[in-house]
Design a protein around this nucleic acid. Structure first.
Lengths: 250, 250
DNA sequence: CGTTTAATCTCGACT
DNA sequence: AGTCGAGGTTAAACG
């Protein structure tokens, strides 16, 4: 990874360092006291404080404060990252994006350390338990939702969005299933409602709507029942196996 | 900020370093080759690769890869952060949360640098142009939406959620206004639709629904018109002033 | 505490 | 390129 580290650099040292390492597909980080300004989709500014500024190889930049996962300021993908001096000769880091037009500007007052390193691109990443995987599991085991259910389509597009599971019950009624990986909210109920209404306009006969989720909020259940829709509690999916963190990985 | 830096530490050195600095309300960061496992609301694992691990004073932890603003793995708030050894005597960083039960486990193979520093808590942060500020601006200048509009309520709670602006037009008809700070999508249209429907059930007479946003996507406009709802293009709010980034801040 | 919603959401997928 | 929807969303506001 070949790290290069600066401690308590002068403004000039930091300037040379950043010009040498920015835009070189490197991971660059600066910790120090600075001000941050963002102008773009909104606008924000921070009083001078201690922050950690991170610039990744793809040009994304994030300014982290003392707390929280979310950065104080950030820019997901920049078209230009450069250093400049302000009118008081302080060093600034400018991260600009053209579309939409956005600018993050970090002005350094005192830098306690800076470093750069080569960060090889990440390797394979596996995620289990996503909503897409739940769809697949349920499509293959529709009995989990209701005995006798037959899946006709997955991700069926009606005008108003995509139906997670389009099925038929053992009485020949169409069944719309909306799947949520976490506790279902009112929003999920209304999403299901829209799908059911859209299908009812297109096919004759009774159309059922089932919201399948591990749990449901109380207000959501009230709305659900008022709309004549159904809830299916998903306990644990059959093929789900959580990896043991202590074991060898590969 | 008093940074302490380790370069190419041995496993033992790193272990001592982490035990000394974790849980001390410090900002701790480790860069190196490692594996990451997450088990909790879902499950994920990464092949061994180069990552930067960040532990903040509030116990939040994030593992950053070479690209993107989003961490590869993270934990917003931890109840316990500790170091341990695995069966191969490699050092592990364990970040656990109890409710919901989640665990992020980082196993270090080779660490190129580690450092800690005191990061004073962030100072004041100002954001301009949020949706809440747009609500306020529109509530004070309802003519921006439509001449003669009178605002009755802000953030009125109907059973189904919160109405941004509840108003009456100059013909005495109730008007529901849904505000979006960015381009409006189908989702915003449906949100407005259910507010309008909820109000229509509760009051007699005509109820209009207006979606106020700087722009609207084509599919959203189609749905909007099919539902008999209206769109109001917000150009620029009167009191909005974007700060000049190059100017002195305070 | 649970519930809801904004977010400079980010990010990927699909049309 | 535009639109849409998931996300281990996070985080704040509100009842």
């Amino acid at each position: 990874m070949n790290p290069q580290i600066l401690e308590q650099p002068s403004t000039r040292e930091l300037e040379v360092f950043l010009q040498a390492h920015l835009g070189k597909k490197k991971f660059v980080q600066i910790a120090g006291t600075c001000e941050v300004v963002y102008v773009g989709r909104a606008a924000s500014l921070t009083e001078a404080g201690d922050y950690v500024v991170m610039v990744k190889a793809d040009g994304s930049i994030q300014v982290h404060g003392a707390k929280g996962v979310k950065p104080i300021n950030w820019q997901p993908r920049t078209d230009d990252v450069r250093v400049a001096r302000d009118e008081d000769d302080r060093l600034m880091l400018l991260a600009e994006r053209f579309k939409p037009n956005e600018l993050v500007q970090v002005t350094f007052r005192k830098v306690s350390m800076a470093f750069s390193l080569e960060l090889r691109d990440e390797k394979m990443f596996q995620l289990h338990g996503s909503e897409a995987q739940m769809h697949e599991a349920l499509a293959q085991n529709p009995d989990t939702i209701e005995p006798g259910l037959r899946v006709l389509e997955r991700e069926l597009l009606v005008g108003v969005g995509g139906i997670d599971l389009y099925a038929m019950d053992n009485l020949g009624r169409y069944v719309i299933v909306e799947v949520k990986r976490a506790k279902a909210t009112q929003e999920a109920v209304h999403q299901l409602e829209r799908y059911v209404n859209a299908v009812r306009e297109q096919v004759p006969g009774e159309v059922r709507g089932i919201l399948a989720a591990p749990s449901i909020s109380n207000p959501a259940r009230v709305v659900l029942e008022k709309l004549g829709l159904e809830f299916c509690e998903l306990n644990a999916l059959p093929e789900e196996k959580k990896p043991e963190p202590q074991m060898a990985l590969f």
